Amino acid sequence: MIPGADAAGAAAPTVVPLAAWRRAHGIAPPIRAARPEESAALTTLCLRAKASLGVSEDLMRLWVPVLTLPAEAIAAGRVLVAAETALLGVAAHGPPVDGLAELTLLCVDPAATARGVGTALLGAVVARLRAQGVRRMTILAERGIAGFYRRMGAVPTGFAPSPAIPGRMLPSLLLELR
């Protein structure tokens, strides 16, 4: 018998893991609701993502409370994850008020950047909020990340105080959820 062939001599099909197939074909990973037991792992993912932007160790300490995902936000269904065999990214939004919600967090593991993970997560948050009747979403972004949100259709609205670093202003954007 020929290695890699069946009893009739036909070549056995090659098995490619789904995650590898998705990457090869430019298909974003599945998005699902986060689970409360993932809170610590998601916080670690967010800290890795922030550190990959070149944030100093001293400033990273200030970001820890902001990037810590509380289990109650996860339990309320306001946190989504992109996951294949591992967690690749996370997005969270605040509770909607009068047709407006805030994107409170969107982090992609540095090993998964430029693979459509952030786009897929943002799209899932938008779809979820739209289904709840939300028509606009505010976003506070790092300067280096604001361009991503502009490419997704968000428009700059000015600057707002950083939630972590006193005296630092960050770009503020508004996304119409059409």
Score class of each variant (00 low, 15 high):
Ala11Leu: 13
Ala10Trp: 12
Ala101Gln: 00
Ala114Lys: 14
Ala83Thr: 08
Ala86Leu: 09
Ala141His: 05
Val125His: 08
Val90Asp: 04
Val55Arg: 01
Pro156Asn: 13
Pro13Glu: 00
Ala7Thr: 11
Phe148Glu: 04
Ala28Lys: 04
Leu121Arg: 10
Pro36Cys: 05
Pro161Val: 03
Gly26Pro: 11
Pro17Thr: 07
Leu140Thr: 13
Ala10Cys: 10
Ala75Lys: 01
Ala101Arg: 01
Arg168Pro: 06
Arg32Val: 11
Ala7His: 12
Glu72Ala: 14
Glu84Ser: 14
Pro163Phe: 01
Thr157Phe: 03
Met1Tyr: 11
Val126Cys: 13
Val155Gly: 10
His25Asp: 05
Ala51Arg: 14
Glu84Leu: 07
Ser172Gln: 14
Gly133Cys: 02
Gln132Leu: 08
Gly147Val: 01
Pro70Ser: 06
Trp63Pro: 08
Trp63Met: 07
Ala92Val: 01
Gly158Leu: 01
Leu80Arg: 11
Glu102His: 10
Ala33Trp: 06
Ala91Tyr: 01
Arg178Pro: 15
Ala141Asp: 02
Ala7Lys: 09
Ile139Ser: 03
Pro29Leu: 15
Ala83Tyr: 02
Tyr149Ala: 06
Gly89Arg: 03
Gly99Ala: 01
Leu177Trp: 07
Leu173Arg: 10
Glu84Trp: 05
Pro96Trp: 00
Thr85Ile: 09
Asp6Glu: 04
Gly4Arg: 11
Arg61Leu: 14
His25Gly: 12
Met169Tyr: 10
Ala19His: 13
Ala127Thr: 09
Glu38Leu: 06
Ala41Tyr: 03
Trp63Ile: 07
Gly99Trp: 01
Ala28Cys: 08
Thr104Val: 00
Leu106Lys: 02
Thr44Asp: 14
Val134His: 03
Leu69Arg: 04
Leu100Cys: 07
Leu100Tyr: 06
Val66Ile: 12
Ala131Val: 05
Gly147Gln: 02
Ala101Val: 01
Gly118Glu: 06
Thr113Gln: 15
Gly26Asp: 10
Arg61Trp: 07
Ile2Trp: 11
Val16Phe: 05
Val97Leu: 11
Met1Trp: 11
Pro171Gly: 14
Thr43Met: 06
Ile27Glu: 12
Leu121Gln: 09
Pro110Cys: 05
Cys107Met: 14
Ala33Phe: 09
Leu53Lys: 08
Ala112Val: 10
Pro156Asp: 14
